[in-house]
Design a protein around this nucleic acid. Structure first.
Lengths: 175, 175
DNA sequence: GCATCCATGTAAATCGTTACATGATTCA
DNA sequence: TGAATCATGTAACGATTTACATGGATGC
């Protein structure tokens, strides 16, 4: 899985600009994927050259012009090939967990701070996911709904687990 | 956070070879970090040149010789600088969740297959983490123990959430 | 005899982020 | 007047994976 596969998937539903794609990634995809403009725009150019998508320039009033991309039949075929290929493993990288792991080499209060930052960010993510679910539920496909339900549940559990972890750490601190 | 920070952290406890480091990453770090030999060996060379670590060749009987690396004072200082720097956001990338999200474009049974693969892998991860906890608990630092407890709890919740998700998906399939 | 573990390393390729560069419009 | 939103793009850099290359020892 790479940015190309994700972009093709987003264009399966309807045509979008690079800016729209970035917005989708920041909202509905935030739980399990991300990409910057520095990836999106060059990928769109590359895909257009390869005939997977086509570009239409749209002139807007009161807003800058934009390039809207539409998936071609070849692009749809590419996307299907991705969807039937072997599933890749999840990737998880956590700076906060790494610092917790190495906690013995710094003061416990520093580690507590790290976990509290992590907790705060998790709370924010949960809030965003819940808001998204509330706002977009009617227009979501059934699998998209399951997707966000899984995201919300997992984030809730993380919150709970982290809170317990912080409590345990604070007990150690007192010793 | 990058491979250098993680390697320095591992060497804080005691000297290790590149092979040992890979093994640690595959076991105790498996939940929140990973790196291949193609990263580990060049990073060790680079750090040695920069004076963050030193190399000792160890001749072994019945096994190939190995290079054991020891952290220097400068390396320890580097590591501390990392530990006190701002915490980076977690990164999570999930091919399985992406396919679930785009589930409307393939047969539901394909999506069920994707989630069942995901579930199977999660079960295996959980088993590994539990085994690791059982085997290494006595030699773990308190923060390392919290670290693996968090890993186990989160993986357990994921298992639960995923199982519910698959059930919901199968209800959709029947319609 | 074959798989697995031990052990190290390089080179090419891939993939991606960050910073830079630009600029109009809308709303408070 | 200043922040936020809309909108596109490039160039330099960084990080990492995959595939290649090698080879002895141990255990089944």
């Amino acid at each position: 899985m790479n940015s190309q596969d994700v972009i093709l998937g987003l264009l399966m539903h309807h045509s979008l600009s690079g800016y729209d794609i970035k917005h989708k990634l920041e909202t509905i995809f935030s739980y399990f994927y991300n990409a910057s403009y520095g990836t999106i725009y060059p990928t769109l150019s590359k895909m257009e050259k390869e005939g997977l998508i086509t570009k239409q320039s749209v002139i807007q009033e009161g807003k800058p012009n934009k390039n809207v991309f539409t998936i071609t039949e070849e692009g749809q075929h590419h996307f299907k090939t991705y969807m039937y290929s072997p599933v890749e493993d999840n990737e998880f990288k956590s700076d906060a967990m790494t610092r917790l792991f190495f906690g013995e080499f710094v003061d416990t209060e520093v580690v507590v701070g790290v976990l509290e930052t992590y907790l705060e960010r998790t709370k924010n993510s949960l809030e965003s996911l819940r808001k998204l679910y509330a706002d977009c539920q009617p227009e979501m496909s059934p699998t998209q709904e399951i997707c966000i339900q899984i995201g919300i549940s997992n984030t809730e559990s993380q919150l709970h687990t982290l809170t317990k972890g912080i409590a345990r750490l604070k007990i150690i601190e007192q010793k």
